[in-house]
Each structure stands twice: as C-alpha cells, then as structure tokens.
Design a protein around this nucleic acid. Structure first.
Lengths: 328, 328
DNA sequence: CTGAAAGCGCTTACAG
DNA sequence: CTGAAAGCGCTTACAG
C-alpha cells in the first residue's frame, strides 16, 4: 500500500516502510506489475537509422515526450532492410510494448508487417505511406512543401528549375516531385528530374547532369532533401559554380546544417523533433482511447519555406553563422 | 516444450502445435519468461542527446550490436541535466535491464548515481570520467588524440597554435587541452586557450578572440571537437579568412561532415559507431561473466589524425566531395 | 513424452 | 488498516 500510494496507510507507518525500502535498496519491478495488470510501460520506436539526423531528431523528440508521460522507449533500427525490420519487430513485440511508432523501411511488405504486428492496435506509421495499411499515420505534406519551394524559386525569376536527387520510386520522393511538377505546370515551365541516392556523396556525383543540355542549362534545383542539397552545393563549388550566386538551391527537412549557411539555405522545415513529440502524443492518445474512431491520418504538419536571410547578414551576428552556401 | 525447442517432442506434434500457435497469432511474452527466469533481455542506453551526431552514431552502433546479440535497447536521454539523468535512470532501472551503458551528463553526482543504480553490476560508463566511480569505462584517448592533432599542425610550420572551444571544466576538454599542451611544450611553443560552448554557434561567436593579440595572431587552431571546428571555420569565412588557406583548423570526432570538406578536414577519428559496438560487447561480456575480474578501463580506442587529401583532389572525384573548408 | 505443482514480483479482490 | 489467496504468462523440477 505504501508503494502504490494508498491513503489508508498511516504517515508513521509509511515513513517506516519507506526507510526499510531504501535501506534494502529496493527497486520496484515494473515488469512484474505490468504482467499482473496486463499493461505495458514501454513503446517501441523503429526507424531506419539514427545516423540520419532527421531520424535522430525525430527519435529524440519521441523519447522526450514518452519519458515525460512515464513511458520508456524501446529502440529498433532497420537500416532500410525489410528483412531486418521483420526481425526487429518480432523481437520488440515479445516485449509487449503498449504501442509502436514505425517509420517503415523502403519496400516494406504490408502483409508481412501485419503478420508480425499481430493484432496490435496502437501502431503509428511515420513518414512513409504503405499501400493497403490502415494504421494511424503521421506524414509530412511532401507535395505541398516541394510545391512551395518550387514557387519560391520561380518567383525569383528562375525558369530552368530541376527536381534533383532521391530515389524516384520512394513515396516521399514521388510526393515531393509531384509538388514540384504542380508548381512548374502552374507556371507553364518545362520540368526535369535527376535521380540520385538520397545522400551527399551521390548527389554531388550527379551534379554534372544539371548542365547536360548546354542550350538550356538549369539555373536552380529543388532538392529531394537537405543532404542532397548540401551534396549538390559541394558538387557545384567543385566546378567553380557558387551556390546561391550562380545557381539557386532549396532543400527539404531543415536539418541543423541548413540553418548554419549564409544566407541560410532555403529549405522546407519538417521540424523532426516536433514531429517526434507529435508522434508520441498520437500513440499515447490511441493507447488511452483504444476504441475511439477509425484511422487517423495526419499529414498537414507545419511545413514552410524559410526565407534565406540575405547576404547582408553581418559577420559579427553570431546568431546567424555565415557559410558560403546560399540560395538567392 | 515446442516453444522452448525441446528435442523430446515428436516432429508431428511440433508441427501441429506450431500450426495452432500461428492460427491463434500467439506471441511469446518475454517479460513473463524473464520474470520467472530472473533474467533480462534489455539493456539501457543513456546518452545526452541524439541530436548530437556523435551520440547518434554511438547509439546506432550500440543498438546494432545489442540487437544482434538478442537484446533490446531501452533508450534514455539526459539533455546534459544531472537531475533529468536521475529521473531517467530511476525509470529505466524499474525495467530491470540486464546492463546499462551510460554517457554521464556533465556535473553528474557519483553518490546520486550509485544510489539510483543500486547494486547494479553491469554498468559501463562511456566517454566521460567520473571521479570516484568504479564502473567499467570506455573512453577515448583524448589526450593522445589532441596531441597528435597539435603535432600535425606544428610539423606544418605553425607556431601560434591555439586550443579552441569547449567548456574548460569538462573532463574531455581538460584531457584534450592537456594533449595540446604537451605537444606545444615539446616544441617549446607558447600555448593559449579560448573557451566556448561545444557547439557551432558559440564557437563562431568566439572567432575574433583568436586575433586579439595583433602582435602574435594565431595561425592555427586545435579545436575541441568537429562542431566547434565547423563553427570556427564559418566564423573565419565571415571575416574573409579562408580556413585551410589563411588559417589551419583541426577537429575532433570525425563526424560525417568532416569528411565532406575539400581537402577533408583533418580531425581525430573517434569512430563513434565502432565505439557503440565496442560498448555493447563490453557490457554483454560483463553480463556473461559477472564475477570476472575487477574494473575494466578501456581508453586506447583507435584515434588517428587523418591527413587532409590535399587541394589537388579532382572536382570530378565523387568519393571526395569538395568543400571550401580545409586544413593545410 | 505428459501433467501437475510451485514460483518469479507484482496487483486485485475480498474477508476480517 | 491487515492478511491470505489467486492470478498475470512464463520456467523449473519432478513424478509418472
């Protein structure tokens, strides 16, 4: 009764019990309590890889919000392998988590997922849509974000704007490109896409393709994400092309580095840490009200084009660290 | 017996049982098994913050190795707050993890830690020394690494080399500075240190101090870590000083960005993912052999000065993405 | 191979 | 307030 905070126990008794507890270095066994109460105090978080800053920030946000709510985070990473994802999920399910936040690996098989997740109700998908899945889902409005970024460039006079980077078959890339295509179509401009792996290295390696057509060389690129944008900027500099002056670049995600350029890289802010909080609150809500409503689909998270702060930023302004990369 | 893979059960029976198991969507409850067997299949990992790429990589390495060994990772973050660290650890201890990997928050109180960890044997400290603690420990050889970096600069002709950034009172900063001091003393050079918070913003804000003494301005800086180095490089550029050409910079940690500069930033490689693997194997070993030996102190992890690849790197060489930051 | 019993550390329900 | 009993889903030990 002392442990469970019952009001029935006399203050003196409580004190004596607590003294003995700490004397014996007693630590409460929540697993035993969970077993008896048929509850769980953990939530599984499965992402691709923590070395991606976007997911690392997201995970930090999830963990923070879960911790505040008294839950503990069970971590799993898939490394974008559906096979590994199955194994990781199977292992995590044995721990009977109260909920699961899953950023599915590319190429996930919904039937296999349904199989391993069993009749687990409190599942929230993050970031990637899965055809045929009916779990709750928190997504970025990729289409709208890329459309805003593209319009931003068009409004600044660019006509040869290329969609740059990413695996064409991934759903987030499809959505972002579709937003780009919409903005280009609305402005009656010709569109063009260049594929790459969604990382710096490969993005840099594809830089030359922007200028393949010497009669109509690109003057701006809407990049699949910030990593690609940073890679492209590096690739441009290697060719003596100054990003932001000779060529305009936008990113997507707003990773920490994006803010540290001068003028800061124009990018679409996904605020992954806030997404993490949001994801945690969504599963917790689902756990508290298991039968409430049907599938929840939340896609309109705050996305915005951040205006670059301009090259006039004073060098002494420490809140705006200058870098040579900019978008006009 | 089927569940536990007993050889005593007939193949036919096994098959029938397994069929029924999957028909009922049975999932093994490892928490119950752990309770009865008085074992645990989880290991707690407590770090400062996943938004630091060094810790994110470390966490990824830990999680990977633990997963391969059949363990599950319980994540906790302290945000460098000893108070929050106490709360997080208390909550994690209730989950009866088999072991704990802890990168202690700055200013951790060993007595308080001992209190919350109880008589938990399988604890591994990572990255930060704690006076009076006798848990296993995995550390970087900060002293040696900084000494190597400093010698590297001295060998290239620099005489006014400053130790730049980091909180002077943190143990890792003390150790790195001590390595710097050793190298400077060995070369009969005057040493000088500049403090900053260990991040880009604040590092950039302290750039001017390098040139306070107009009669003997610094020509090179051994930075506390890569974040500080990147911030300093930004601060230099803002003043029209080209890092790598007009001023030499070295980092520490070898985060992903360090490699992506051209010539790549000379830095001391701590290989955090490999440290994660190593940490996981160390606790697992401790768990398997609880009584074996005393305290294990491992500090000689692979540290090396990585030579910058030189400005001759071809622009078309995609394996070496060019950036404007370099150290000579 | 089968079956029944006890126990891990808790919570719940109920009798006093 | 106190105490005894049952049960969460497993494992262990033992009798048949």
């Amino acid at each position: 009764m002392v442990l469970r905070g019952s009001p029935l126990v006399h203050a003196d008794t409580r004190r004596r019990v607590e003294e003995e507890l700490s004397r014996q270095r007693y630590v409460y066994n929540r697993a035993a309590a969970n077993l008896r109460r048929r509850t769980s105090s953990s939530i599984a978080l499965v992402i691709n890889d923590l070395s991606n800053p976007f997911f690392a920030e997201f995970a930090a946000g999830v963990d923070e919000a879960l911790g505040d709510a008294g839950y503990v985070t069970l971590l799993g990473s898939t490394g974008e392998s559906p096979q590994r994802q199955q194994a990781v999920l199977a292992s995590l399910m044995e721990q009977t988590p109260a909920g699961l936040i899953l950023s599915p690996a590319e190429g996930s098989d919904v039937a296999a997922l349904r199989q391993v997740l069993g009749r687990h109700d409190n599942v929230l998908l993050f970031n990637r849509e899965l055809d045929g899945a009916d779990w709750d889902m928190l997504a970025l409005d990729n289409e709208q974000g890329a459309c805003l970024a593209t319009r931003h460039l068009i409004e600044r006079g660019h006509r040869h704007v290329v969609f740059f980077g990413g695996h064409a078959q991934s759903s987030s890339c499809r959505q972002r490109r579709s937003g780009y295509l919409r903005a280009m179509r609305d402005a009656s401009l010709l569109s063009r896409s260049i594929e790459s792996a969604p990382n710096r290295q490969d993005a840099a390696a594809h830089t030359a393709e922007l200028f393949d057509d010497a009669s109509a060389p690109a003057t701006a690129a809407v990049c699949y994400n910030d990593s690609v944008a940073l890679g492209l900027m590096a690739g441009l500099m290697a060719r003596g092309i100054r990003p932001g002056q000779d060529f305009a670049v936008t990113g997507f995600d707003d990773i920490a580095e994006a803010e540290l350029t001068t003028p800061s890289l124009t990018t679409v802010a996904a605020d992954p840490r806030a997404r993490g909080h949001q994801a945690a609150l969504l599963v917790l809500d689902r756990i508290r009200e298991p039968e409430q409503g049907g599938r929840r689909l939340i896609a309109a998270v705050q996305l915005k084009v951040r205006e670059s702060s301009g090259s006039a930023a004073a060098a002494s302004d420490s809140s705006n660290i200058p870098f040579p990369f900019l978008s006009p």
